[in-house]
Write a protein that binds this DNA or RNA. Structure first.
Lengths: 249, 249
DNA sequence: GCAAGTTTACATTCATGTATGTATGCCTGT
DNA sequence: ACAGGCATACATACATGAATGTAAACTTGC
């Protein structure tokens, strides 16, 4: 009975996306997993593959039904497994959820490192602009999009997973590194003198978070790849020191 | 702290089994646990009072445990009633949830009406600024704060309640009336010519939504009554036409 | 007495965690 | 090199907990 399930799963999950990790390890010496005979070849690579499959399945089902309403049974079935497999790889639903998140984390610090050339450092505001634009790009990737939708819309506080603590940790980390740049911008006179770094920081963070929240609610409404950059560019364009601003000091 | 509360509650309520819950906490015949002295009179006014009590209770428990993990039994219990009362006043959890929301709705249109004097119309950007500031004020009221926290953090999509449809409706309504003002501001030359109304609109909406989302996650972190207005004022200050901007036309 | 309001009882459904079964992969000693 | 033993990677079964909706029994206002 699992044959059809597996086929559907392969179509819906591995269809168009780039799953570089999963198929790599097991194609070497095993035959197709859609074979009608059951063939449990539990090599290390295959175990890792089912782990990934379970996480993929979790993304799909969490997105469809919400975290609290999905049972581990449903996740297992989506992956063509049973609950036993889930409990083998993960302690419980919360553990699985965190593992799912770990696959898409993109700390601001790392984004900044990607856009900053140590030899030729950008102005801090330009670094932030590029980093947030880069974050927007990554957000549109299918997996990142799914998981962030789950985080913002398909999970609730005080559930199996402590979402608020998770979000809080991410946000505080983001705030701190962002603030450093804004303070740098103020000190170097790039930021308009009337705008305190803390306020600029919260403005940028709120705008980004709000945009994510709004767009992910229904991504078909508008193209965030076009709207997002225009919003960010406008913000950065407007908060920097302008000719008519009073000179700092 | 929630864990202990839950545990205590479970102990006191389900301590035995499904038998004789009444004997533990409630008196058998005169069944008004909140008011033990007077026999309950079920007049129309009192029925309405229990309805409100149930909604109050829902706010509290939803906030503590999340919507999906809250049982109607818990809500009833918090209000000093039983599940029967809930099912009398509301069709189900979703119905109750919507009723709870209806008590705090603040459409942007109405907020604008409050700050706009028909005799002496403000500039559109000033209207928007006052309206959003007003919204911030109202958000800090205990009930509004609770319910919006529930909406943004304690409820999930595809649950008993269709949160996304609700948010979508509110957001679209907000976007439309907001866009009118920004277009007005562009036409009257109040808005910087380089900023399209659609972008300004999404910037403001995203910033407000993001601020709500961020602040409500942990309101003790900062004083939104101080930070919020500074963010909004800065935004409006910077997106309006400035002396160094190219004149429109 | 009738109906509104509320409680109690009941049947059903479903998720969870764990315990147990089992087949396979991997390793080790000789 | 290989036979046996142990750990791995699952599947299945079971016991428990808990929520839901509805029906039926009161209880009181009018």
């Amino acid at each position: 009975m699992n044959v059809n399930l597996q086929k559907n799963w392969l179509c819906s999950c591995y269809g168009g996306f780039n799953h570089n990790i999963t198929n790599a390890g097991l194609t070497s010496r095993t035959h197709s997993p859609v074979d009608d005979t059951i063939m449990p070849k539990r090599t290390k690579a295959e175990a890792e593959a089912t782990r990934e499959a379970l996480l993929d399945a979790a993304e799909v089902i969490f997105l469809e039904r919400g975290v609290s309403r999905t049972s581990l049974e449903q996740i297992a079935r989506q992956a063509g497994m049973t609950r036993g497999a889930v409990y083998w790889h993960f302690k419980n639903k919360s553990d699985l959820f965190h593992a799912m998140l770990d696959r898409v984390k993109m700390p601001l610090r790392q984004l900044l490192d990607d856009v900053e050339d140590p030899d030729q450092p950008n102005a801090p505001l330009e670094s932030l602009r590029l980093a947030t634009l880069h974050a927007l790009e990554r957000l549109q990737g299918p997996r990142s999009r799914r998981v962030h939708t789950i985080l913002l819309h398909c999970s609730e506080s005080a559930s199996d997973v402590d979402i608020l603590a998770l979000q809080d940790q991410l946000a505080c980390d983001c705030y701190e590194t962002m603030l450093e740049r804004f303070e740098d911008a103020r000190d170097t006179g790039t930021l308009a003198a009337s705008i305190e770094p803390e306020i600029a920081c919260r403005m940028l963070m709120s705008m980004f978070l709000g945009l994510m929240h709004d767009w992910l609610r229904d991504p078909e409404r508008y193209d965030i790849g076009e709207i997002g950059p225009r919003m960010l560019d406008t913000l950065f364009e407007r908060i920097r020191l302008m000719p008519c601003d009073p000179r700092p000091g």
